[in-house]
């Protein structure tokens, strides 16, 4: 009887260790995915001053928008909390879109080689950022699925693991395209 009890305890311990490790792996994947978002945000962050400098040469009248972007950049620089970082990043995305729409009114800028390079890089980074968000959401879904399902939910309860929140698409990206705004 004692041997059976010891056997059951060892089995439970092994199962606990395996599930615990699985949760840790999933958690690390979420952190890794968040790290990727951070890298692309940093890349975009570094690109903004150069872009603003070039735009300023041709579209100095759009001071309000340029100041807004500069202020938000400074604000983001001091942000530490992930939630705030993501919120600032979303705000920045919508401002960058407004900037691109504004640039349409200045045809001269499109002949500037430096601007074209920066615009290409910015578009590329935005695409990478979008991919990083999707990868993060996939990692979060994996993690949440794991900790909410039996028997891992018991282990997660002991570990006090909470589900992560999925990143929502910025409201600006959800909006329908306003052709009038773009074509005007």
């Amino acid at each position: 009887m004692t041997n059976v009890l010891i056997g059951i305890i060892i089995l439970i311990a092994i199962i606990y260790i395996l599930i615990n490790n699985k949760i840790i792996v999933k958690k690390n994947k979420v952190n890794e995915a968040y790290g990727s978002i951070d890298v692309y945000l940093k890349k975009r962050f570094d690109l903004i001053p150069n872009l603003l400098a070039v735009v300023n040469k041709y579209a100095a009248h759009e001071k309000d928008l340029l100041i807004k972007i500069t202020e938000l950049r400074s604000k983001t620089e001091n942000t530490i909390k992930p939630k705030e970082t993501i919120s600032s990043a979303n705000e920045m995305s919508s401002l960058m879109k407004s900037l691109q729409a504004t640039i349409e009114n200045y045809p001269d800028i499109k002949t500037d080689r430096q601007f074209l390079i920066l615009q290409y890089n910015l578009t590329d980074i935005e695409e990478q950022l979008s991919a990083a968000r999707r990868a993060y959401n996939a990692a979060v879904t994996h993690h949440n699925d794991t900790i909410q399902m039996f028997p891992a939910n018991f282990v997660a309860g002991i570990r006090r693991d909470r589900p992560y929140k999925i990143l929502e698409t910025p409201q600006e990206e959800k909006k329908n395209i306003d052709a009038k705004n773009i074509l005007s």
């Binding site: 995915a33 990727s36 695409e127 990478q128 979008s130 991919a131 990083a132 999707r134 990868a135 959401n137 996939a138 990692a139 994996h142």
Partner: peptide, 28 residues
């Protein structure tokens, strides 16, 4: 392996990658 969110696509294909972010960058 990569688990993508497009159900129609996932019904037909399996995706393998060296980088989860890059896979999604490619497969918009």
């Amino acid at each position: 392996p990569v688990r993508l969110e497009d159900v129609r696509f996932s019904k037909h294909f399996l995706v393998y990658t060296t980088d989860q972010v890059e896979a999604r960058y490619v497969l918009s």
